[in-house]
């Protein structure tokens, strides 16, 4: 009844979570991003025009770099002055060390320090991208399947290439064609061939789950917040109740925002942790 007359909440929700060729800074301005021509590579059509999420990706990356660079600089200065680190820099050092030691090295093992920069970059990049969606006018690039898929593909390539260099070609093929202990002859070969599709599927499912988990968590949170805001637009014109509806909705949204804040950290942690675990699993495969 109301849906037909009022604004289209579904359209509104999708509009705010989807990528776009513009950046809405309403009511101040709307920035129209440049459109570039499609590139055709073989049968593929590729359009590299920057979108809203590209801008926020760069924004997130720039913020991560700025944070870490400033923290590093102030740590260096504080140490040069023979003082122990304090304030913002000390806090960042603590978080960075947590990611390095307790996420990367703890799960990868002896070679953890080698992969730590990758895991740290993943954690902070995902975290900042998650948090950007909670800001006014903000958007979460990690609420876009293309972005999470791209990151997951990087994790996949890191896992497989690092596994290949660590295990050697023969050892790596062993992760695709597993050798069943105690089996010999044609039975063992048959078993290996039978298991190969399952092993390959297992390799692909891990990054797929990474991508979908992050995308789903971010998108779902935004859907909930935007849907709650939709209540205002749907029922806000009921005489005498409009203030109550506005207040209750705002309270609910604040609650969900708090939850989203936790989810932003949690999903960055989970993404980095699982990436480290996958790298570690492959490194210790025998």
């Amino acid at each position: 009844m109301m849906l037909g007359q009022g604004p289209d909440i579904g359209e509104m929700v999708l509009h705010h979570t989807a990528d776009a060729w513009t950046i809405d800074l309403e009511p101040i301005t709307t920035i129209h991003l440049p459109r570039w021509a499609d590139i055709h590579i073989g049968g593929m059509t590729l359009n590299l025009s920057p979108t809203k999420h590209v801008v926020y990706l760069i924004f997130a990356a720039a913020l991560v770099f700025l944070t870490m660079w400033l923290a590093g600089r102030s740590l260096r200065r504080q140490r040069a002055g023979e003082k122990s680190p304090k304030g913002f820099a000390a806090a960042m050092e603590g978080v960075v060390l947590f990611v390095r030691n307790d996420i990367a090295i703890a799960n990868i093992g002896a070679d953890g320090a080698k992969f730590a920069p990758f895991v740290m970059a993943l954690f902070f990049f995902v975290l900042y991208a998650n948090l950007l969606g909670l800001l006014p006018w903000g958007a979460s690039p990690t609420g876009n399947l293309a972005v999470t898929a791209a990151l997951a593909i990087l994790v996949f390539l890191t896992v497989e290439i690092a596994g290949m260099t660590k295990l050697g070609f023969k050892g790596y093929m062993g992760t695709i064609f597993p050798h069943a202990p105690g089996m010999h002859g044609p039975a063992a070969v048959g078993f290996s061939l039978f298991m190969a599709p399952i092993e390959i599927l297992g390799k692909l499912v891990k990054p797929f789950a990474l991508a979908v988990r992050l995308f789903g968590n971010m998108t779902a949170g935004h859907f909930v917040i935007l849907s709650l805001f939709g209540i205002i637009f749907l029922f806000g014109d009921i005489k005498g109740w409009n203030w109550a509806i506005g207040g209750v909705t705002a309270l609910l949204v604040v609650g969900i925002m708090m939850l989203e804040l936790i989810v932003a950290f949690l999903q960055a942690y989970v993404f980095a942790l699982l990436s480290a675990v996958f790298i570690g699993l492959m490194q210790h495969e025998h």
Partner: peptide
């Protein structure tokens, strides 16, 4: 939100790899 923009994949790689090396 359920659409995968291949261009964005390349942008993500570019931005993330640049961030990785800068950091």
């Amino acid at each position: 939100p359920f659409e995968v923009n291949t261009g964005l994949i390349f942008w993500t790689w570019l931005v993330f790899i640049a961030l990785y090396f800068l950091l």
